[in-house]
Nucleic acid binder design. Structure first.
Length: 572
RNA sequence: CGGGGUGUAGCGCAGCCCGGUCAGCGCGCCGCGUUUGGGACGCGGAUGUCGGAGGUUCGAAUCCUCUCACCCCGACCA
């Protein structure tokens, strides 16, 4: 392709809407333009990236035995009512009415549709297992779209759905998708980690996420890894064992009220009473589906909202506003404690059951209680793991220690069980003639977000450094003086050679100055750049360099294809 | 939805407080010329319902009211 014949509107300045470097480069490099909040136009370069990544996804999905279909984006609300999710997905679901006042939704995912498809059609265990997938636009009315393609309201996703007759067969199907995912991301030049994740609104028994580890702002999630074994989980899901548990005191001392003037935060109280934060117990008041509940965790821990939410079995969990806290504790915020609370559930973190003579708020202004003990002084409604994992704690599985890294989710896999098949009445007959619901799995890959994640990981101060297999072009030819006849001839010669050898190639045939072309080339990030300039051309040579390094190789005009091939084979 | 902020030329912004040569700057764009290996220079030029509606006023980009869009923080995230 010639630069002047396609459309690559690069920008010199950073559009004010972009925060992340990857988002900035997508805009500046002429890959995308915003149409509305979270809604983007994919320009020619982006179109090619999508095409390249989609091809890898298709090839690996097909290899794994999945079958491609295309399901509609527009769904009748009734199908969503069948699974019951119509009432639980909430405002994320785009809804509309047609001219007949018929309720429709725009699909944010397709479990219902694919289950509806197979319900009634697929009747025998002999037809199982089956894996159907599509690459399709999705709509989610995100509460706050941001970061360009990373969290849009409209985006492209590959979603696959497996149907199995029994757990054993399902395990095989699931593993096939896991293997396919690793193969896909590897081919795309992206080293991903599989982590355990919460199942969230999808339901089902377990789930994993495929994460690209990054060290920039773009990391959307904290991930917990063991430094010794394979344990990996996202923050919502991660568990741990304490590396340095406080010594268990043998004697229980009597509770005593102490003055803690102007000390309501953990820092202030520990400083005042000269104790470690791990001897303090925080009493946090939350509202679970509107009803107050107290959560007790150690002073040095953070509450894991997802764990508490799952434990309580509520849909919504939010910190209680000060007015409610004050009503419940009958004192200003900052001095809440478990003793003397009205009749509300008290959920106590596991660690506290191993703590004696600890310190809590007294439910009195500027007072705390010392030597408080669980069981003797107050009762727990439940004891559970409700805190966030922290770096330096021990792995739940082995003797290793946990580290925390930032990652971007590029794929996910869900073990759905029979949640959708059972609720929607999608049954088959097994070998004994019994009617059974399908055992399902669902598997997503963000087609538009993955390239942005790749940019977040692979870039420098000048622009993108694409992994070759998802780059819009493999080679960019930059004739420094395209208007000079010899330069033009050489450029056209190389262009033709590469195209004839099926190397995706972009020829910068603009009449701009060299600096403009070099800067644009760095910005859009094509892996190989071939520069045609005065000095080298006199020796019938051109310069070849990889975007990710400064090494320049001088190559004979006729030897370009071979050198390009070799260079490409050596880079990510 | 709560808190904060921004809408002025394709992009980045100034002007707003204190109403009156304030319709401006840089980049980009068009023309001519010079230049030509890391975002050139000169000369000439085009481009705006100042987000929208209403109001105050002799007069509004500027003050007031309403409204829409977008951005940031939080809640949320199949």
């Amino acid at each position: 392709m010639r630069w002047t014949q396609t459309y690559i509107p690069t920008l010199r300045e950073v559009p004010s809407e972009a925060e992340l470097i990857s988002h900035q480069y997508l805009l500046r490099g002429g890959y995308i333009r915003k149409l509305a909040a979270g809604v983007y136009i994919y320009l020619p370069l982006m179109q090619r990236v999508i095409e390249k990544f989609s091809r890898i996804v298709r090839e690996e999905m097909n290899r794994a035995g999945a079958i491609e279909i295309t399901m509609p984006v527009l769904h009748p609300a009734e199908v969503w009512q069948l699974s019951g999710r119509y009432n639980t997905v909430g405002k994320e679901q785009m809804r509309l009415k047609d001219r007949h006042e018929h309720e429709l939704v725009l699909g944010g995912t397709h479990e219902e549709i694919v289950t509806y498809l197979l319900k009634g059609e697929l009747k025998s265990y002999k037809q199982l297992p089956i894996n159907l997938y599509q690459i399709q636009v999705k709509f989610r009315d995100e509460i706050r779209p941001r970061f360009g393609l990373m969290r849009g309201r409209e985006f492209i996703m590959k979603d696959a759905y497996t149907f199995d007759a029994d757990e054993k067969s399902f395990d095989v199907s699931y593993q096939k998708m896991v293997d396919a995912y690793f193969a896909i991301f590897k081919r795309a030049g992206l080293d991903t980690r599989k982590v355990e994740s919460d199942t969230g609104a999808m339901g089902g028994k377990a789930a994993h996420e495929f994460m690209l580890i990054v060290d920039t702002e773009g990391g959307e999630q904290n991930l917990v890894f063991c430094d010794r074994c394979e344990y990996a989980a996202n923050m919502e899901k991660a568990t741990f064992r304490e590396a340095n548990p406080p010594a268990l005191e043998s004697e229980l001392h009597p509770v005593k009220e102490v003055d803690t003037p102007q000390a309501s935060t953990i820092e202030e109280v520990t400083a005042l009473l000269k104790v470690e934060a791990k001897r303090l117990v925080k009493t946090l008041i939350y509202l679970g589906d509107g009803k107050p509940v107290a959560a007790l965790i150690r002073g040095d821990r953070g509450l894991n909202l997802t764990k508490l939410k799952n434990h309580l079995g509520v849909n919504e969990l939010e910190m209680a506003p000060p007015s409610i806290v004050e009503k419940i504790t009958k004192c200003p915020v900052g001095f809440a404690g478990p003793i003397g609370l009205p009749n509300i559930p008290i959920i106590v973190d596991n660690e506290i059951s191993r703590l004696r003579n600890f310190i809590t708020g007294a439910n009195k202004f500027e007072k705390h209680l010392i030597n408080v003990n669980l069981g003797r002084d107050f009762k727990a409604t439940a004891v559970a793991d409700i805190v966030e994992a922290q770096a330096g704690e021990k792995c739940p599985l082995c003797e290793g220690y946990l580290t925390i890294k930032r990652g971007i989710e590029v794929g996910n896999t869900f073990m759905l069980g029979t949640k959708y098949s059972a609720s929607m009445g999608a049954f088959f007959l097994d070998a004994e003639g019994n009617e059974k619901p399908f055992i399902m799995g669902s598997y997503g890959i963000g087609i538009t977000r993955t390239p942005q994640a790749a940019i977040e990981k692979y870039h420098d101060s000048k622009g993108i450094i694409w992994p070759k297999n998802i780059a819009p072009y493999l080679v960019e030819i930059v004739p420094v003086n395209y208007e000079k006849e010899e330069h033009k001839k050489a450029a056209e010669h190389i262009y033709k050679e590469l195209v004839n050898n099926d190397v995706d190639c972009l020829l910068d045939d603009r009449l701009d100055r060299a600096g403009v072309k070099f800067n644009d080339a760095d910005l859009i990030g094509i892996p190989v750049r071939i520069t045609i300039g005065e000095k080298s051309l006199k020796q019938r040579r051109v310069e070849i360099k990889y975007r990710g390094s400064d090494n320049v190789e001088l190559v004979e005009l006729d030897g370009v294809v071979a050198v390009v091939r070799k260079l490409l084979s050596q880079v990510n």
